[in-house]
Design a protein around this nucleic acid. Structure first.
Lengths: 151, 151
DNA sequence: TTTATTGCAAAACCTTTGCATGTAT
DNA sequence: ATACATGCAAAGGTTTTGCAATAAA
């Protein structure tokens, strides 16, 4: 729900110059119905908008956005990184092995125990990576894994 | 417990032929003081024993061992897979970002909650991946940290 | 103008694969 | 003897990097 003015302002506030590739990548994340996108996803989506933005630039922009705190990166078992808008609230992920659906969740109990475990072993906890994998019960998914969703 | 007889028997019981590369890789995991090894680690360790075992073979053997249930594979943030002996008991990992130390832990509470979260979202939980990252308090590790002037 | 950013292609990584040779059973 | 395993080199997929051209400030 952000116009280009706001997007540009968001960019400026991170100290990054406002350029077409950066605006478009940010806009894509803001507007996409799919929250989680890989570099390739972003690259192809931009191509479909007839934007000639190189894959290398996409990677650079994604990395810069991650460092600027605009995006969060996750490494699921797919072997490639996926990015999502960083809206401040930490969460972990639950993924469907069948249809690729991604559910976000936060569990205070798990967070607490992680902290306790680190402390118990004499570690200062810095970050963690948690992903659950399973099969969702949606009819569409259980029945046919044929389709692979693309935003 | 880890003489060649036993190792060979372990191999046979998986249906895999007993070959030098397989014996040596298994032996390495049994004898190594480092539980968690990457393909490259294994490759180099074997080289140091003057064994001419190709990297491709190492990858093939590791994959076969994983499928046979002899090894477990983890994908930490390093970007490469690490393998460890599968001793049957599930555990997750706590890693030191500084020195690379790996601590294994199991927490029934976390396991329970993961199950509950999956169920709540209508998922049949299949597997999960959990890794905690932090800084260990070991002097040796702290020292490195200080020397590098980053904290 | 000055400095940062882009695009392209090439390289860097980790991992897998094709194929001819070699080995276990 | 046969089927499977190995080594090498080449290729695969994802991500990074060098560099000249380009665009933002």
């Amino acid at each position: 729900m952000s116009d280009n003015q706001t997007l540009a302002a968001d960019l400026k506030s991170t100290g990054l110059k406002v350029t077409v590739p950066r605006l478009k990548v940010l806009e894509l994340f803001e507007q996409s119905s799919t929250r989680h996108l890989s570099a390739e996803d972003v690259y192809k989506a931009l191509l479909h908008e007839d934007l000639d933005i190189g894959l290398a630039t996409v990677y650079r922009v994604l990395t810069q956005f991650e460092q600027a705190g605009l995006l969060r990166r996750s490494n699921f078992e797919s072997g490639k990184s996926v990015f999502e808008l960083n809206e401040g609230s930490h969460h972990d992920h639950l993924l469907c092995l069948e249809c690729g659906k991604v559910v976000e969740f936060f569990d205070a109990g798990i967070e607490e125990r992680q902290q306790a475990i680190a402390t118990k072993h004499g570690f200062a906890l810095q970050e963690h990576s948690l992903a659950l994998y399973g099969h969702c019960q949606v009819a569409d998914c259980e029945g046919k894994r044929a389709r692979r969703g693309r935003g």
